[in-house]
């Protein structure tokens, strides 16, 4: 009973952190970079990259994974927002940067999983 309670609490805290992180970061961007410009895109990328790096450094698993999920979600926002419009030179740069960070994060965070379960011959 206690175990299921603590799991439920952890899930609720995760969801709250996830939603709050996305909202707070968006509000920071809206407040300081209100115009839809390339500078705003860069600011979003920096803020979201900061979030992802912080999520990798944090030792607490729940907080770490939640921040990582929030960072990924925000990256997806940028990715799809950049799909339409924007300059021809900035678009591939943003796509490339997002994909690169996602690959690096995947290797750092989940790379060890393949080593833990080597393929049996």
């Amino acid at each position: 009973m206690d175990k299921s309670n603590s799991t439920a609490t952890r899930t609720l805290i995760s969801i709250a952190i996830y939603i709050l992180t996305i909202i707070v970061l968006q509000q920071i961007i809206n407040a300081f970079f209100p115009d839809d410009s390339l500078t705003r895109k860069f600011a979003e990328l920096i803020l979201d990259t900061m979030l992802i790096i912080v999520s990798l450094v944090v030792k607490n698993t729940v907080v770490g994974y939640t921040l990582l999920a929030a960072g990924f979600t925000r990256y997806l926002f940028i990715f799809f927002q950049s799909w339409d419009g924007g300059s021809a030179t900035a678009k591939p740069a943003i796509f490339g940067f997002v994909v690169l960070v996602l690959i690096i994060v995947a290797v750092i965070k989940f790379g060890h999983l393949s080593e833990q379960h080597p393929k049996e011959v």
């Binding site: 300081f32 970079f33 115009d35 410009s37 500078t39 705003r40 860069f42 600011a43 920096i46 803020l47």
Partner: peptide
């Protein structure tokens, strides 16, 4: 620091 730089650049 980078964001402040971007803010003033903007």
């Amino acid at each position: 620091a980078i964001l402040i730089g971007l803010f003033f650049y903007q």
